[in-house]
Design a protein around this nucleic acid. Sequence first.
DNA 1: AATCGTTTTGATCAATTGATTAAATTTTTT
DNA 2: AAAAAATTTAATCAATTGATCAAAACGATT
Lengths: 207, 207
Amino acid sequence: MKCLTDTTEERIKEAAKTVFLEKGFDGTTTRDIASAAGINSALMNYYFRSKEKLFQSIFNDVCTLMFEGMLELINQPISLRDKISKLMDHQFQMMMQNPNLTIFIMNELRLNPERLYGTLGMAKQVPESIFHQQIEDAIAQGIITPIDSDHILTMIIANIQFLFVSKPMTMLAQGLDEAGFNAFATRHMEYVKDMICEYLFKPESVT
Amino acid sequence: MKCLTDTTEERIKEAAKTVFLEKGFDGTTTRDIASAAGINSALMNYYFRSKEKLFQSIFNDVCTLMFEGMLELINQPISLRDKISKLMDHQFQMMMQNPNLTIFIMNELRLNPERLYGTLGMAKQVPESIFHQQIEDAIAQGIITPIDSDHILTMIIANIQFLFVSKPMTMLAQGLDEAGFNAFATRHMEYVKDMICEYLFKPESVT
DNA sequence: AATCGTTTTGATCAATTGATTAAATTTTTT
DNA sequence: AAAAAATTTAATCAATTGATCAAAACGATT
């Protein structure tokens, strides 16, 4: 699949990403990574100094993957309604492709809060975004229910992300297979979109 | 604090629960547990045959703690509005007391899906509850928006649980301390309650 | 106090862990 | 092609892991 820059370093990172995401930091051995990458296990320490350093590198990449698209969208000059809809679509597609991205990140942050400092830059950008200003303006104009942008973002993210955080549980409780879950998730998204939009844009403006 | 049945076995289980919840299964060593319980590390294998067996015991307890209250509420003969409100309050209080209960459970299930079989009993009860019937009746009577009860439960759970799953991230992004987060969470709960109820009970009945 | 069953301990096991080393191999430069 | 630098390997290290065992300590019963 990936043809560009097929260096050994990249091969190790790809393998490490796969294994770390599947087993977590504590559940992964350096030999797991080495065998997944098809290399001698000493080679990992040649390129990255240690398991911890390699993990940090992967973790940064994964956090970027998680946040960069969202941050871009948040700062785009489009209407609030559009923005909210696109934010949800973007996250949904991201999670359909990487179903355990969020639980991996959240759990590693919980186990080792120092990793937060790596994501500090991205996290801090959210409260100071165009989105935030748009919300305040819309409230001032009486277009949407008065509510802080942090709460709106939390609503958007929570309703999508938790769907995937709890995916195994949901599949069991409802007796779904992979396809069944995807159908459920897709349907749920529509409900959530309606719910959030109807809540925000409550006093419906003139047609 | 706990005075009843202060047996060695209980001491081990309490210590194990604390350590497992903090560090996860892979991040916990049997010596961690032994020292937290103040016992010789061989004693753990005397009462529980292995680390895995001890974990299963803890994991069952934790899942019960998570679901039993919710299942009780779901089957109570109270009005739908009341039930939804109480469901959210109950979960919120539970999570305020055990902030990483959910992420622990969801992550361990992800790492080792076989653990699901232990929770199968509880999970299966949800779709066959009084709550489910209440929703169908309310829809038939045109009281609430037509939507499957699975989606409603997912909305309720997601909006609360993800608040705590993402707690470290939220605190960082908004620069909150413990008290600040609790205030944010409490406020968020009110918004979410409003949002869900307004969405469900949309065509407001006669006063 | 002697005996028996239960509980607890210290010592230790084999396996696995992350990491290092020196040597072998490949690639680049001269 | 020779020399130098970069990459890769096999072998091995010390530390930690989950688990076991025989012996010690404890408590109850006789």
